[in-house]
Amino acid sequence: MLIRYVRMTFQEDKTEEFQEIFNSSKDKIRAMAGCSHLELLRDINQPNIFMTHSHWESEKALNNYRDSELFRSTWAKTKILFADKPLAFSVESITVA
């Protein structure tokens, strides 16, 4: 399983707009083949910084989503709201609690 984190810093007056975009697309993302988890996190000290945390069955499943029209349209609406370059990390769990 691939775990994906994407940290995004938004213009302070654009956070509500981003949350609307996320809320309108989250169920469609969760329904993508290979996605088993998606959540949105917010920094407790910097409310304009958000992070998505998602689980994918493989890198291929993630890339299929990233190559989809859903991703392209959602990302186009999201990236214009950024205050800084996003950071993305793909990791795998090596220990289980």
Results as ranks from 00 to 15, higher is better:
residue 33 A to Q: 15
residue 18 F to H: 00
residue 80 I to P: 01
residue 58 S to D: 01
residue 6 V to H: 02
residue 35 C to A: 01
residue 44 I to L: 14
residue 19 Q to Y: 06
residue 78 T to H: 04
residue 9 T to R: 07
residue 88 A to P: 04
residue 41 L to G: 12
residue 38 L to M: 04
residue 52 T to M: 11
residue 2 L to Q: 11
residue 84 D to P: 01
residue 54 S to K: 00
residue 86 P to M: 04
residue 18 F to G: 00
residue 77 K to L: 15
residue 58 S to T: 01
residue 35 C to T: 00
residue 90 S to D: 15
residue 37 H to A: 14
residue 10 F to I: 08
residue 10 F to N: 06
residue 92 E to C: 05
residue 77 K to W: 09
residue 76 A to I: 13
residue 32 M to L: 06
residue 21 I to G: 01
residue 24 S to T: 07
residue 93 S to H: 09
residue 81 L to S: 07
residue 9 T to F: 01
residue 75 W to K: 10
residue 84 D to Q: 12
residue 46 Q to E: 14
residue 79 K to D: 04
residue 77 K to N: 15
residue 14 K to S: 08
residue 14 K to A: 09
residue 83 A to C: 05
residue 72 R to N: 08
residue 86 P to R: 03
residue 90 S to F: 05
residue 84 D to G: 06
residue 15 T to W: 05
residue 18 F to R: 00
residue 17 E to N: 03
residue 5 Y to M: 14
residue 84 D to N: 07
residue 75 W to I: 06
residue 19 Q to W: 02
residue 3 I to Y: 05
residue 95 T to L: 11
residue 21 I to E: 01
residue 30 R to Q: 06
residue 30 R to L: 15
residue 5 Y to V: 05
residue 78 T to S: 12
residue 18 F to T: 00
residue 18 F to L: 00
residue 14 K to Q: 13
residue 17 E to Q: 13
residue 53 H to A: 07
residue 31 A to V: 04
residue 2 L to S: 03
residue 16 E to C: 02
residue 54 S to P: 01
residue 15 T to I: 10
residue 12 E to H: 06
residue 47 P to D: 14
residue 26 K to I: 14
residue 6 V to Y: 02
residue 47 P to C: 06
residue 84 D to C: 03
residue 19 Q to A: 05
residue 5 Y to P: 04
residue 25 S to N: 15
residue 5 Y to D: 06
residue 55 H to E: 15
residue 59 E to G: 12
residue 80 I to A: 02
residue 5 Y to E: 09
residue 8 M to N: 03
residue 19 Q to S: 07
residue 18 F to S: 00
residue 97 A to F: 11
residue 53 H to T: 07
